[in-house]
Nucleic acid binder design. Sequence first.
DNA 1: ATAGGGTTAG
Length: 527
Amino acid sequence: MPEPNVVSWTSVISGFNDTGQPQTALSMFQQMHEDEYVAPNEFTFASVFKACSALAESRIGKSIHARLEMSGRRSNTVVSSSLLDMYGKCNDVETARRVFDSMIGCGRNVVSWTSMITAYAQNARGHEAIELFRTFNADTTTLDRPNQFMLASVISACSSLGRLQWGKVAHGVVTHGGYETNHVVATSLLDMYAKCGSLSCAEKIFLTICRHSVISYTSMIMAKAKHGLGEAALQLFDEMVAKRIRPNYVTLLAVLHACSHSGLVTEGLGYLNSMVEKYGVVPDPRHYTCVVDMLGRFGRVDEAYALAKTIEVGGEQGALLWGALLSAGRLHGRVDIVGEASKRLIESNQQVTSAYVALSNAYAVAGGWEDSESLRLEMRRGGNVKERACSWIEIKDSVYAFHAGDLSCDESGEIVRFIKDLEKRMKERGHRGSSSMITSSSVFVDVDEEAKEEIVSLHCERLALAFGLIHLPEGSTIRIMNNLRMCRDCHEAFKLISGIVEREIVVRDVNRFHCFKDGSCTCRDFW
DNA sequence: ATAGGGTTAG
C-alpha cells in the first residue's frame, strides 16, 4: 500500500495479535508511529494494549498509555477496558483498579467489570474478586448480568480460595444462566470442585463435557493427581492420547505431578525422558522442578540435587526449582542440601525471606544454634519479615483457620494429640519422613472461639452479599427467604445467612438465585 | 474495513 491508513495499520496489528505474534504487533505500532500523517484511533489502542497484555509488558504499555491520555481517546469503554486488562495481566492491580475507578463516568459494562474481577482473580486476590462480583450484582446502574466470561473468572476465584460453598452458589448462577455447556465455564467448575476437595463433583462435570479438549483432560488429570490417584491420572492420560488429543506442556506437568504425589518415581522419570519423542513436548524448567520435587519426596535427594544443578534457570522459575530442592532437603534432614538450595534461592533474588527461614531452621535442627541465630539477625537487619502462613478449610458451615507456629489457642491440646496420633500411624505404615509435623515449622492450630465466630460471620455476610442472588421481589428482606423451599445445598449456603437475618438485608435485585419459588432447584440433581 | 473480558501447574 502506498499510503496505508489507520484501518490498514490496525488490521495488521490485530492480525499479528490473532496469530500469536504480539511482539510483531508492537513493532508494527512503532512503525505506524513513525508515519506522522496517521494517528492511532480507539481500535488501534485497544489492539496494542492487547499485545502488551500478551507480553506482560507494562513498561511499553505505560508509555502507550501516556500517548492515549494525550490523544483524548481514554473515554472509550473498549480502550479503557483493554488498558485495565493490560495492567492486570502485568500484575499491576493497583493501576488496573485506578483505571477501573476512572471509568465510572464513561460507562462501564460487563467487560470492564470482568476485566477487573479477573485482574484480582489472577493476582491471588480472590476475596476482592468476589467482593467486586457482589458489587456488580448490586449495581443498579447497569442492566448487564454476569455472563460466561465473568462466571469463569469468579469460579476461578472460588477455587483459589478453596471455598466450596461459594463455588456451588456460583455453579447455581451458571445453571440459572444456561452457561453450563460453555467449555471454559465447565473447565473452571471442574477445577473448582477438585480444588475445593470434591473429586466426585469434578468428575461429574468432566462427564458432562461432550467435546473434550486438552484443557479439560489436563484439568481432570490434575484433579486426580491432587487427590492422590496417580494411577487413575495416568490411565486418563493414556485415554486422552488414545483419543488423539495432543498433550501440551501443562498436561505433562500434570502427569509428572501425578507421579510425584503417588510415589511413581520410575514412571515419572520415564515420562520426563520420553516426552519429546513420544508427545513432542520439550521439557522446560517447570517439568524439571516437578521431577526434582518427585525425587526429593521419595528420598532420592542427591539425584534431585544432581538434576537441579543441570538446569540453568534464574528468576522466579529458578526460585521454584531450588525451593523444591529445599523442601526435599528439609523433609529428609539434609542440612547440606538445604544450605546449597538456600544459597541458590537467595541468589535468585526471589522469596529470599523463606530461604533464610528454611536455612535458619535447618541449622537449628542440626544443632547449629549460633548459625541459626546469626542468620535471623541478618534477616532482621535486611528488613526481611516472613509473612505468617495461614491455611483454612471449610467444614459444613464453618471456616476454620490455622496459623503456623501458634499453639496458644489449642488449650485442650486436642489438635496436638490428634497430629501425634496421625504421625504414629504414619510411622507404623512405614512413612519415612524424618521430621515431625509438630517440630517442623507447620503446627496447625485452630483459632479461638471468638475469632472463629468473627471469621464465620464475616464469610456469611460475604456469602449473602457477594452472591445476592435471591429470587425475590425487589424490596424483600432475607427473612422471607425462609418461606422458600430450597434444595439441601442451597439451603446449606443460605443457612449461614440466618445469623444476620436480624439486620434485614434488603434484596436489591431479583432473579439471581438458582432456587426458584416453586421449590424446584436446578442444581438439586447435580449435587 | 480495524477494537476489549474467561479455563488447565507450582
